[in-house]
């Protein structure tokens, strides 16, 4: 098991170095950083001095190593637009994005899995068909459209729930949370549903497909032949086997929820990282872009690692393979 973890960690480091290389080349190829930092009236000597101070005259390899060294210490330089350290900007907005992502992931799992199980167990019922038809809508409508429709329905027409922002937040150390105030919770509902709807339908269809597959297996037939109750067969045996692949997909989806929250954040003006990134793109604020890239990669890597380890916990076959490998 330890060898398995170490191997996975080494793979994760390789991935992070690759992403770091891409993030680093952003600086090199998207214009001259010096030009973006100084004004028109800066003299050539000052520019040369700045170039020297920033280490831009060093060999590329040195610069890359320095970039990684800085990134490892969470030093991503200063934002061109805000003139403040990028890490402070991100730390300020990270809680908003993470809360949104986790709540919508939770929503998609808590609603998607029961719906998937229901549609698999009651294939011919009317409700199953309603769920399936609704999931088709969820899977085919673009996120921004769902967001706008929800805004039109709840805040505009029914005058409930706020249409933008994060509501009141409470600061706990460096973390600002909207989960402890009524207005924060209210503000979270629509963005979380918007962001989670696609994942929910995906998970529902995945659970349904996997469960139908599992219900056809011999060990389910044998479990029934042993006289176990429907409950034990469906939820003890079938569901557990269903959730193994679902876990992988759900884990990866959590990564993409965080990464692609930016559309939802922009529709609801949610003060998260996605919105920060969008503004950075508009203003060619490369330090923010490269830091965001690294952060998202890190989140993906951590989630993948966690899913792999969870897999080993749930599925004993993988545990053994890992031990012998």
């Amino acid at each position: 098991m330890l060898a398995f973890i170490i191997r996975r960690l080494l793979q994760a480091i390789v991935v992070m170095l690759t992403v770091a290389l891409i993030a680093f080349t952003l600086f090199r190829f998207v214009g001259d950083p010096v030009n973006q930092m100084v004004g028109i009236e800066t003299s050539a000597e000052e520019r040369a001095q700045l170039r020297q101070d920033l280490g831009l005259n060093d060999p590329v390899v040195f610069q890359f190593v320095r970039f990684i060294g800085n990134a490892a210490r969470l030093n991503f330089g200063s934002s061109y637009q805000f003139k403040t350290p990028v890490i402070d900007l991100i730390a300020d907005r990270l809680p908003a994005t993470l809360e949104l992502a986790f709540v919508s992931a939770l929503f998609s799992l808590l609603v998607g899995i029961p719906m998937g199980v229901y549609t698999a167990l009651h294939q011919r019922s009317i409700l199953s068909n309603v769920f399936l038809a609704a999931s088709l809508i969820g899977i085919s409508l673009p996120t921004f459209l769902i967001g706008i429709l929800l805004i039109f329905l709840f805040p505009v027409t029914l005058h409930i729930l706020p249409s933008f922002g994060r509501g009141d937040v409470v600061h706990i150390g460096f973390w600002s949370t909207g989960l402890l105030t009524a207005s924060g919770l209210k503000a979270l509902v629509l963005p979380a549903v918007t962001l989670g709807l696609f994942q929910m339908t995906l998970i529902m269809r995945l659970v349904r497909g996997e469960m139908l597959e599992v219900l056809r297996t011999d060990y389910i037939k044998f479990a029934r032949a042993r006289g176990l109750s429907d409950r034990a067969v469906n939820f003890g045996h079938a569901l557990k086997n269903t959730l193994v692949p679902v876990m992988t997909i759900a884990g990866l989806q959590l990564g993409s929820i965080i990464a692609f929250a930016l559309i939802t954040e922009s529709v609801f003006q949610w003060p998260g990282m996605g919105l920060l990134f969008l503004r950075a793109v508009q203003n060619v604020d490369i330090p923010i872009m490269s830091a965001y890239l690294l952060l998202v990669a890190l989140i993906f890597v951590i989630i993948n690692l966690t899913v792999d380890l969870l897999y080993a916990v749930v599925d004993p076959r993988i545990r053994i393979d890992a031990r012998t490998a």
Binding site: T217, D218, Y219, K221, F222, A223, R224, A225, R226, G227, L228, S229, D230, H237, K240, N241, V244, V314, D315, P316, R317
Partner: peptide, 23 residues
Amino acid sequence: RKIRGKRIGMVFQDPLTSLNPLY
């Protein structure tokens, strides 16, 4: 269901797939 397993037992063809791999 109360008869299955209690009064009639059943053995299937493929022992490799008759047991739930996760238990």
